[in-house]
Design a binder for these strands. Structure first.
Lengths: 219, 219
DNA sequence: CGTGAATTTGACTGACATCAACTCAGGTGG
DNA sequence: CCACCTGAGTTGATGTCAGTCAAATTCACG
């Protein structure tokens, strides 16, 4: 169920300019008008919501190959802010043109729907995480999730770099920076991983998965 | 940006049989194959995820006019279970037929995308709620959310019936049944609402909104 | 090196969970 | 009609996990 060459060519034609986004810069902000979806070519992003009292909640971390901006389709306004976690590059996909194309190309349409649907299920699993997992379990699930996403992209699932700060991890997982730090220390002590700054090595993925699944408690 | 009559007629043609779902019955279950989306005609549903260790997390409450099953598009398998909270009625929308129609009908396509996108933003706001709101704020936000949805459907925003148990509310909000009960009592004492069983009357919506927004703390 | 930011670690606190007892409404059968 | 039972909900006492506050340490970078 991939896109064929013809599909890809027609898709390429509507894809707008590549755009570089410097570390820390916004790709779009809450309230911005919606023109484009963005396909991440290079780098990492975070998306965040802001509550009425001004508190920020990170709703996801995105990496190369993922699509940004789908939440804006409903009202033609962006509902979250996307920030580059490192110097990154995206392709603009003008949504108007994409829509026209979708009408002609059932496979592309199907593909697009899958991506939106995937975002829905991703968010549901975060709700599960935030709603009834303990801190240890949340953090293990987070590490495993990154691991499998890197693996799917052909990178090592055991060794990767955290592109986000401890604070951002904490915010995403509904925990404080201190808790994240303690969890890292605990996992290190347990022989589950090796950390040095943002460089991470998972030493015992099966056990980490078991902790994430809740079938093992961790000391 | 509604659908015109012609659109509606063609849509009606593909809409399958109406299906009654008794209180407590499943409309679909995690792992079921995906055939149809479901438009709720009558009644209320909850959707829930189950974590690997068997804990249930309610990811949403849906009412008449809302669409169920969009999370299944990505893998052709349902990722959550939908349960009727009361005797309800849905329309089956065979997704295959819908897709064909979407190719021909740009307005319908646009409408469908908006609905999917809306689900994404809804979930993001739940993440915000679960990630960094206090119990009181979560519950106020929950009540206000229901209120505005009933209002949008032409029902009273001040007086409505809770279709779900205290336990279900707690599960959804990442709290226990006891906490929900205490919050109800607190709000009652504060003169914010009147409750009797599942019958609810919001006495001071502005203040409740302020609490939900985090701009007011509540005693 | 020196300065400020990010992270780690420790002590204490608090919000919500847990445990337990009690109330109440609704249904069932004598 | 009423005694009994059951399940939902309420209320109180206590415990605990993660938050808060504070200080120490390490890191990034001029």
């Amino acid at each position: 169920m991939g896109l064929d060459n013809n599909d890809m060519n027609r898709l390429d034609q509507i894809i707008g300019r590549r755009r570089k986004v410097a570390r820390g810069a916004n790709l779009f902000r809450i309230g911005d008008g919606f023109q484009n979806l963005y396909a991440i070519r290079l780098g990492h992003f975070k998306t965040c919501q802001v509550s009425q009292d001004g508190v920020e909640q990170i709703t996801g971390f995105q990496m190369a190959g993922e699509l940004l901006g789908m939440d804006a389709i409903s009202t033609d306004l962006h509902h979250c802010t996307a920030v580059a976690l490192e110097d990154s590059e995206v392709c603009e996909i003008p949504f108007g043109s994409l829509q026209q194309l979708l009408g002609d190309m059932p496979t592309l349409l199907r593909h697009f729907h899958r991506m939106m649907s995937q975002e829905i299920t991703r968010e549901q699993s975060v709700m599960l995480l935030l709603g009834n997992m303990q801190a240890t379990q949340r953090f293990a699930a987070f590490l495993i999730n990154l691991s499998s996403r890197y693996e799917a992209r052909g990178y090592s699932p055991h060794t990767y770099q955290l592109r986000m700060s401890r604070e951002e991890i904490g915010n995403y997982l509904g925990l404080t920076i201190e808790s994240i730090s303690r969890l890292l220390s605990k996992f290190k002590k347990e022989g589950l991983l090796r950390v040095s700054n943002r460089e991470l090595e998972l030493l015992d993925p099966p056990r980490l998965k078991a902790i994430a699944a809740g079938t093992q408690t961790c000391a």
